[in-house]
């Protein structure tokens, strides 16, 4: 039977891809159950064999906060934008910890799930995507802790806190964007696995977590906020503080950079995706 339009009616057509950028959101949506179970797996496994379970999600930021408070707040006496220093640090550690966890996880995700990639088909983006979603659980727990601390320090949230989801979304966008780059690169160059811990450490100090954005001379702030985490941290602090000015310029620059990183990451990932099964 000769068909004038080859492939008409075919459920699936397999051929070499020619288009440069083709993100099939519909297909990702069809695989949403898989995404759900991969996140679920990681959350389960993460807390399964730990004695104190979810407390780890609290311990890490608490200890970091204590160290920063003592070293930078008390010894170095860094200014904290009029907030209690612990809150000042914690408001930044909240997105930062999520971010570093997300890029560490997603960076290693494709290599870690190599077995799946070699044996089963699904949109590969789901793997780093699930690795970016999983640490949101810790983020939520730590956020609860922050609310508790605010009550303890007698701070009441203002309407500004309503914009927090926006900044949280921005953090996820950056994390996913960077995670896509790192995970795809890691398949090709295993060096990336070694670079990630180093990268997060350097990035931490390049981000105003322990110090205030105000310490950076104002003429450099826009340049500085090319690091997208600068805008995120500034945004988080502002929503918690609820007073004073938001560095709108820094936030806009950071937001633009994060969207660019994500779009670039998706394109790069798509480009590399086809060879994953052959080289991973």
């Amino acid at each position: 039977m000769l068909s004038t339009n080859p492939g008409a009616g075919a459920t699936i057509v397999i051929q070499p891809t020619r288009d440069l950028f083709h993100l099939d959101l519909h297909e990702i949506w069809q695989h949403r159950d898989l995404l759900y179970f991969l996140v679920w797996r990681d959350v389960k496994v993460r807390y399964k064999q730990t004695a104190i379970g979810a407390a780890w999600a609290l311990l890490n930021p608490l200890v970091t906060m204590a160290i920063f408070t003592v070293v930078f707040g008390h010894f170095a006496k860094l200014p904290s934008d009029g907030m209690p220093y612990p809150i000042f640090v914690f408001a930044a550690l909240l997105p930062w910890n999520y971010y570093s966890q997300a890029i560490t996880r997603s960076g290693a995700s494709l290599v870690g799930d190599a077995n799946l990639i070699r044996k089963v088909y699904f949109p590969r983006v789901i793997i780093p995507l699930s690795a970016t979603i999983t640490p949101l659980v810790d983020f939520a727990i730590a956020f609860g802790l922050l609310l508790g601390m605010m009550i303890w320090f007698g701070m009441s949230p203002t309407w500004a806190v309503l914009t927090l989801p926006l900044f949280a979304a921005m953090t996820v966008i950056i994390a996913l964007g960077v995670g896509l780059w790192l995970s795809a690169l890691n398949v090709r160059y295993r060096d990336v696995g070694h670079i990630i811990p180093f990268l997060t450490q350097v990035w931490l100090y390049a981000t105003p977590v322990a110090y205030s954005l105000n310490l950076v001379p104002s003429q450099f702030r826009l340049l500085y906020s090319l690091n997208p985490m600068v805008g995120v941290v500034e945004g988080f602090r502002w929503t918690i503080r609820g007073s004073g000015d938001l560095e709108v310029g820094a936030v806009v620059v950071s937001a633009a950079v994060s969207v660019l990183v994500l779009v670039g990451g998706l394109a790069f990932f798509k480009h590399m995706e086809e060879t994953f099964a052959d080289v991973v």
């Binding site: 080859p6 492939g7 009616g9 075919a10 459920t11 699936i12 057509v13 397999i14 051929q15 070499p16 891809t17 797996r41 389960k44 496994v45 399964k48 064999q49 799930d113 077995n115 799946l116 990639i117 070699r118 044996k119 089963v120 088909y121 086809e274 099964a277 052959d278």
Partner: peptide, 29 residues
């Protein structure tokens, strides 16, 4: 799982493929 270099294939229907049993089983679960 991998793309061809040349040529094409058409599949009419929902595909399930089993290249291995137990793919993705997690020891801790």
């Amino acid at each position: 799982i991998t793309k061809p270099t040349q040529g094409r294939a058409e599949i009419y229907g929902r595909v399930g493929s089993l290249l291995e049993v137990g793919t993705g089983f997690h020891q801790e679960l």
